[in-house]
């Protein structure tokens, strides 16, 4: 039955464009076959999401594009490429792009590596309180970036626990030893947010591994390292790629942590600066936001092509 109508729509599409479109609208409004009814259901069920996405995201993004071309900071007037020219010519923006990309790449790679070890241990080892370990690893996902920044201050700030401990044992000055506001401190802040997310993605993949092959390799004399490299890793590779894609996106979008620990000038911090402190530079902020959005969007869709949708879990 469904096949018949699928053939039917095939012939419909050879009609003129307007006629085919009218027929499609007619089929949505008053479906005659089960396939048409199904299509209407899909449309109705997706409608609320798309209403939210259109008013919440697509229209505002369109406005963002318009704003970046406006002559006036407060109204959309005229046409001017000033904001884009500023973005393309001033060296500070190139530096921001470079900072954002290298820092996100380094922190993501580190976090995914740690997450592979963590999910391996959670899936394979007989750990006590396994459920509580999972809860503790996922706990930081709920923390907003500013709280993550505060966590790093608690560990490594001037009154931080580790700073004080090191100062106590070495006799150094606490102010010199504090590393929370350095790039190293920010690195740990990013890792604090990213390791849990990467682990949650990989945990799903590790749960689905076929353990027979691993056991066979071990029984035939391969060492654990060789077994992991030749048998386990190829099986979890799609999950590793998915974790990298999702974690990299998250790393690019981090804002609160870098607001509390402003060690590196990254894109989110700069967008905030353009709006709050450097005056109300909406045109430049819009242009930056647009570049930023297009990059993340393009990266995600390119990344998703490498993986199957099953691995995409947050």
């Amino acid at each position: 039955m469904a096949r018949d109508t699928a053939g039917g729509t095939g012939t419909e599409s050879t009609r003129t464009g307007v006629g085919a479109r009218l027929a499609a609208v007619r089929a949505l409004l008053s479906p005659r076959t089960e396939a048409e009814r199904e299509r209407r259901r899909v449309a109705v069920m997706s409608l609320p999401y798309f209403v939210l996405a259109i008013f919440g995201a697509f229209l505002p993004l369109g406005m963002l594009a318009r704003m970046s071309l406006s002559e006036n900071q407060f109204r959309n007037e005229g046409f001017s490429l000033d904001a884009w020219e500023t973005l393309a010519t001033e060296p500070v923006y190139r530096e921001i792009a470079w900072n954002t990309l290298w820092f996100a790449t380094v922190t993501t790679t580190f976090s995914v590596l740690v997450a592979v070890a963590l999910s391996h241990a959670l899936a394979k080892y007989d750990l006590p309180f396994r459920r509580w370990i999972v809860a503790m690893v996922s706990f930081p996902i709920a923390l907003p970036g500013i709280v993550v920044g505060f966590m790093i201050v608690v560990l490594l700030g001037r009154t931080g626990l580790l700073t004080n401990a090191v100062a106590f044992f070495t006799g150094g000055s606490r102010i010199d030893l504090a590393t929370a506001l350095t790039v190293g401190g920010l690195f740990l802040g990013y890792a604090f947010s990213l390791i849990p997310r990467a682990t949650m993605v990989l945990r799903g993949t590790f749960e689905e591994i076929n353990t027979d092959a691993e056991e066979a390799a071990r029984a035939l004399g391969a060492s654990p390292l060789l077994t992991f490299y030749h048998v386990t890793l190829p099986q979890v590779w799609p999950g590793v790629v998915a974790a990298f894609v999702l974690t990299f996106r998250t790393a690019l979008a981090i804002f609160g942590t870098v607001l509390v620990l402003p060690a590196l000038n990254v894109a989110t911090l700069r967008i905030n600066l353009e709006i709050q402190d450097l005056g109300f530079n909406l045109a430049v902020a819009s242009a930056m936001g647009l570049v930023y959005f297009v990059f993340i969007f393009g990266f995600t869709f390119a990344g998703v092509r490498l993986i199957d949708n099953e691995s995409l879990k947050i």
Partner: peptide
């Protein structure tokens, strides 16, 4: 649907304008 379309900071700039 399963990935946040826009990062919060960019969405905020867009909202300020729209």
């Amino acid at each position: 649907a399963i990935l946040p379309i826009v990062p919060g900071v960019v969405l905020a700039v867009a909202f300020l304008r729209m």
